[in-house]
Nucleic acid binder design. Structure first.
Lengths: 136, 136
DNA sequence: ACGTGATAGTTAGCTAAGCTAACGATATAT
DNA sequence: ATATATCGTTAGCTTAGCTAACTATCACGT
């Protein structure tokens, strides 16, 4: 029952936020990957795919899109010629650290409008969920 | 911050659950639509699209897939010849009401393994989230 | 030093979700 | 009766996901 609700909420949340994407060129997959690149980068495509729970070919295309939008760039991996390292550009960092993406901003505004009890429940839930998801 | 975490959790949750789909032929969009059909049906494609926050052409294809898998069926709308009504088949109902889909079951198992405090937080969060999402 | 096997990333090719634009069919209002 | 609005579908696009197959590099055993 709770599982149903969480599942449903996730689907509908992402669908709602999706509407903000057209303007920015940054959708769920790209924003999520960029976040990892900014906070954990430079990082190899393989590690990025693992962090994002996605197969390597999927990540290849997400990274390509980020590079094309000037949000990330590739550099050689001195330790391993097969591999590359992905790092955020200034623009990519700025977008994530300062301005924050439209997508998440819309949600943040709504969460900010809640009373502090509710906000606290969401905060605790986010952490519990994180653990639950890792275990799946 | 909380918004970021919720956004990220939603993405990663759905990606994890996606793995269960190949076997069943029921993915996120279809399962979510079927749920509405079972609990709110018979329903027109238009209303279904609205309930699912999706454009009509998107729903056309989701419904087609459900019909093809024998989980839903169309019948004439006596009130309006332009429209049709979608209703769940016995199989569709059974899948949702009894057995429950693999997708959600995997999550339910994990949630069930939490202590009751954590489960309660998730339950409350699901309800708060539901309200937040409607308001977006 | 060199061939064999493992590993990293990409390419190719598929399914499916999402969208807009355009269209046929039916309802409704004038 | 005719114009307008609405419902659903079709067509055509982008993007996310996958597996399988390929290339390039690395690491190891002889």
């Amino acid at each position: 029952m709770v599982a149903d609700q969480l599942h449903s909420a996730s689907i509908h949340l992402l669908r709602k936020l999706r509407r903000e994407d057209a303007a920015s060129g940054l959708n769920a997959a790209r924003l999520s990957a960029l976040s990892v690149i900014v906070f954990a980068g430079p990082i190899t495509p393989g590690d990025l795919a693992a962090a994002e729970q996605v197969r390597p070919p999927t990540m290849t295309r997400i990274v390509d899109a980020l590079v094309q939008h000037g949000l990330a760039e590739k550099k050689e991996n001195a330790q391993d010629g097969r591999s590359t390292l992905i790092q955020a550009t200034g623009l990519g960092k700025k977008l994530l650290l300062r301005g924050r993406d439209r997508r998440v901003r819309v949600l943040a505004e709504r969460v900010g409008g809640l009373d502090s009890d509710d906000r606290d429940v969401l905060k605790r839930a986010a952490e519990i969920l994180k653990r639950v998801i890792v275990a799946i």
